[in-house]
Write a protein that binds this DNA or RNA. Structure first.
Lengths: 345, 345
DNA sequence: CTGTTAGCGCATTCAC
DNA sequence: GTGAATGCGCTAACAG
């Protein structure tokens, strides 16, 4: 008989116990291709056979192997998301929004944490590229030369978020940290504060915000603003320490913090010391919209809309990936920020 | 000449522009197999050719395709991590610890957010299984029947974390939420409080902690403890709302919250209303060790060590995956918790 | 509407 | 030390 057929004899205990298309096909009395179609393009398959296939899938507990699928189609349905850290609440809204938008379109998220380290980012980009993600999201715009290079060569859509720059790798969605700093300085000056202090985590963007506050103050004739820089990621504990150190330099009118978390730490320590906020010292924070909403009635803060960034980014990617948009003009969105003043709210 | 060689003519513009082993091999004047060896098992390759290969890799910008690698070896080096949400700080330490431990051994993390929904979890498990992860980490032990079933059939190592149960799917690392509730109740009773109130988010484990507090109080003769249940995930804002609602029922001695975040919201609202903490009302929280350390000098809380859970889980998985341990006795770890009393600290 | 052929990129298993 | 053959599980492209 037909010896060219080798009816899968003796393959029963392969190392890999997983059910394949072939297995389902055999049970349904069709070929693998038909099973594949029944699952992915049901409209191409007769209703009756489709039913048989579905039953077979059910019976075998078949779960499509997306590794194989991705290899064959050159589409992984994976998005790589690089984040400095999740130990700070600042990014969580963004992540949540992005992931759920992506998930709704069948994309999964591969996470990489860089710890604010360029070298780490470089290494993670390298490994994540090995997964052939359909898109890459980077937090920030400051990357190692090698990272930039690798990414520029790639055809995968890339979005840098959470910052602005004149030469993005590809798409860009964020806001200007310098603008935030300047706005904070002017806002506080307008409110009549004169004795300033700045508390900052030592992450690159936090430092830029804080630095811009100091510069803008200088431009308005306020010099020698005391500034304490603390190790990122910012925690409540470091915020408390920060206040302690600032107080050694005298009591200011207002303390501008690079992050809401630091600001909360300051509030906690102030409470312990019986310092009244904002009567004796006002506190200004910076952070994400919803998570930290209503942090404290006495805390003024700069609000950015992380969820919006995440959603916008995801949508831009999906537009590109679904082929609606082939090589769009470089997307660039300034999502801006809002100063929330508790006293005048 | 040698016509059996088909020097890759006309393949220049495949859909997929990516460099393959073959491309590197050609440039280095060896076969793909040798390149593969030079990269993964360098000791099997002559130093000189290894160097040539490495140069070729450099020149071409080759990045190994892990989809193909995973398909061939049936090892994805991927760990699926299912989490209710990251919008709340409670899990962040755990995630950070787990991811960095895994990353150090070359494993990447695929994240799935369930929003505390069993059906969502079911769906996510299904899709993530398609990536053929080498291990799966689930938060909690309460899964849909289908999820349990699918997971029991799989040979992939599975760890359930953040809870305890008598019939884990596989490995288990966590603590008892009932024990937490009972301990909180007894602790507060010992300290002399008599007029209790409970504030809880409506996530399953939070409810169990809060429920256990109420039960234990009842067992000690304290009945009719007012309890407000708020929508998960808990935010500062919901914490503030919670206090408002509780106050309508009268001022208690102490408020036990299902989460530090809720507790902080209570503190913020209390500050706004000029209620002195802990003099007029004491507040008790629950949360993760390091992130929220020193939340507030006046806040007592139950501490769990999320980082430890993450690290333990990752290490247990790695032990299994690296083959040191084939079919170990079921791992079961109670990581316990600590009551931190601010007044007596 | 369904089947056949071929190949995605890599690694295992023999040869040499 | 290195090469050749083969297959991982799936799907594009073409037949019929």
């Amino acid at each position: 008989m037909d010896e060219s057929y080798r009816p899968a004899a003796g393959r029963s205990n392969q190392a890999n116990e997983s059910v394949t298309l072939e297995d389902v096909a055999r049970l349904a009395g069709v070929t693998a291709m038909t099973v594949s179609r029944a699952l992915k393009r049901p409209e191409l398959v007769k209703e009756e056979t489709r039913q048989r296939v579905l039953d077979a899938v059910q019976a075998t507990g078949y779960v499509p192997n997306m590794l194989a699928g991705a290899l064959a189609t050159n589409k992984s349905h994976l998005v790589a998301l690089l984040l400095p850290t999740i130990a700070t609440s600042i990014f969580t809204d963004m992540v949540q929004a992005m992931m759920s938008t992506l998930a709704a379109s069948g994309y999964q998220t591969l996470l990489g944490l860089t710890d604010y380290l360029r070298d780490r980012e470089e290494q993670i980009v390298q490994t994540l590229l090995g997964r052939r993600p359909d898109a890459i999201v980077l937090t920030g715009t400051d990357h190692s030369a090698i990272t930039r290079d690798r990414l520029l060569k790639t055809k995968v859509p890339i979005i840098e978020i959470w910052d602005l720059t004149d030469d993005p790798i590809d798409m860009l969605i964020g806001f200007s940290h310098e603008a935030v700093g300047r706005a904070v300085a002017r806002h506080l000056l307008d409110k009549g504060y004169r004795r300033f202090a700045v508390l900052s985590a030592d992450d690159p963007r936090g430092l830029r915000r804080s630095g811009s506050i100091v510069e803008e103050l200088k431009r308005h004739g306020v010099h020698d603003v005391p500034m304490e820089v603390l190790r990122a990621p910012a925690t409540l504990q470091t915020g408390r320490e920060g206040l302690v150190r600032l107080l050694e330099k005298g009591l200011p009118d207002v303390i501008a913090c690079s992050t809401d978390t630091l600001a909360q730490g300051v509030l906690a320590e102030a409470a312990r010391r019986g310092i009244s906020i904002p009567r004796e010292v006002a506190v200004m924070g910076f952070g994400d919209l919803s998570t930290a909403a209503h942090v404290h009635p006495a805390l003024s803060t700069v609000r950015i809309d992380g969820a919006a960034i995440g959603k916008l980014a995801a949508e831009a990617l999906l537009r590109r990936l679904d082929g609606k948009e082939q090589a769009p003009a470089a997307l660039r969105v300034d999502t801006g920020f809002t100063i929330v003043d508790r006293e005048s709210a």
